[in-house]
Design a binder for these strands. Structure first.
Lengths: 219, 219
DNA sequence: CATAGGATAATTGTATCCAAAAATCTTTGA
DNA sequence: TCAAAGATTTTTGGATACAATTATCCTATG
């Protein structure tokens, strides 16, 4: 409809951002077919940047693209989600352990501030950005850019389900409390407690995501 | 020069394969600038599939692409390589542990066969493919496709340096022996031994890769 | 002589157009 | 009526052409 005009380097990356948000927000559902022409018309661009954006989302794990058959919103298998959470436990556990001794008053204040913002999020996109921001701030002092990138990559294909189950308008069952207890454990320098809370946090999220994903059915 | 004709779904993926091999083989060096027009002419295609291939290699970590500024072969920092190997230790250690009980006579025979082929490899590309094949066969029984994909992804940006240091024509300092001892430990079901050997194997590779990478200098 | 400014060239990003493949519809035969 | 085969439409992959940005070279000026 309206021509894209974002503070992005290129049309393709701006499109990728928009489409990513559309999928995360649930505007596109798993299995939905994304037509190049339709998207191009909708955003007032040609199909070339659309194709580049779709390729980008494909290797983020948000789309399944088949040769000459179009791009569909991916529907992760329960087993794959399970495996992703096992990997997250490893990677995020390592990041948390390394970050623990590196936090200071400034970073802790920032963590609390981010948590406040997160709890005020009133849509799924805001919630996802907020939760990623919180965890990134939690792990950033580890000084491990590659692991942090991996953290983002592992979340990408499942954040839409987390947001659906934990985001605004959902029963949050102590999820915010876990974040605050994480901050407290980090502030106290209690590595064991922090690890335990993180593990519990991720296990709970895993269960909720698995439920949200299977709820969608195999339609 | 000659038009691309590979058993690949698309021109872009065939190109990506070729360029990946060219980088792994050392035909392109870190810092080298890949011109779209030049590559297009060389392979007898237009710039469109070239761009898609470059984007693919970018998110494999082989290229650094800057807006309007071209694609350069990436030059990983020592710190990044270090971090990658720490991640490999986590992921591959987990895969090995899970695979251990799942191996049988057939898979062990296959492992030995792959190791034989690997030791016969007479160029870098063959060595890389062989080493990946060996480790994939070692980890495959774990039944963890996502972790296996992560394993490949972590190797991608550093395999060219491993091949340079460990491949054909290099002093292999007991590297093949470690593979054979791995097979033996797996055959014996000795989890602790297998972990120890794998850790040693990766630590040795890390040192060799760091040396090969810094050798290239910051030209 | 060094350097800042601008014109020129080279290169990338995007739009338009054509070819190849897949999906859909129609027809035909049993 | 149903299924299989062929024509038509739709959609994607790739080539060509154009616009936007960056790099290079030349000149002017202190």
């Amino acid at each position: 409809m309206s021509t894209i005009r974002l503070a992005a380097a290129t049309t393709a990356s701006a499109l990728a951002q928009r489409l990513r948000e559309a999928i995360d927000a649930g505007h596109w559902q798993p299995g939905d077919l994304l037509r190049q022409e339709q998207i191009a018309a909708e955003y007032g661009v040609s199909r070339i940047p659309v194709r580049e954006a779709l390729a980008q989302l494909q290797n983020e794990g948000l789309l399944d693209v088949a040769h000459y058959r179009g791009a569909r919103v991916s529907r992760p298998r329960a087993q794959e989600i399970d495996e992703i959470f096992d990997l997250r436990l490893m990677v995020e556990g390592d990041l948390l352990a390394r970050a623990l001794g590196q936090h200071d008053q400034r970073s802790l204040r920032e963590l609390k501030r981010l948590q406040d913002t997160l709890e005020d999020a009133d849509d799924r996109l805001g919630w996802i950005a907020g939760d990623i921001g919180f965890h990134e701030a939690l792990y950033a002092p580890a000084g491990r850019p590659r692991s942090l990138a991996l953290f983002r990559q592992l979340r990408a294909p499942i954040d839409r389900f987390s947001a659906q189950a934990l985001g605004p308008g959902a029963r949050k069952q102590g999820w915010a409390d876990e974040h605050r207890r994480l901050i407290a454990a980090v502030a106290a320098g209690d590595a064991a407690a922090a690890q335990t809370i993180l593990e519990h946090h991720l296990q709970a999220t895993r269960a909720v995501v698995l439920a949200a994903c299977s709820e969608q059915g195999d339609n």
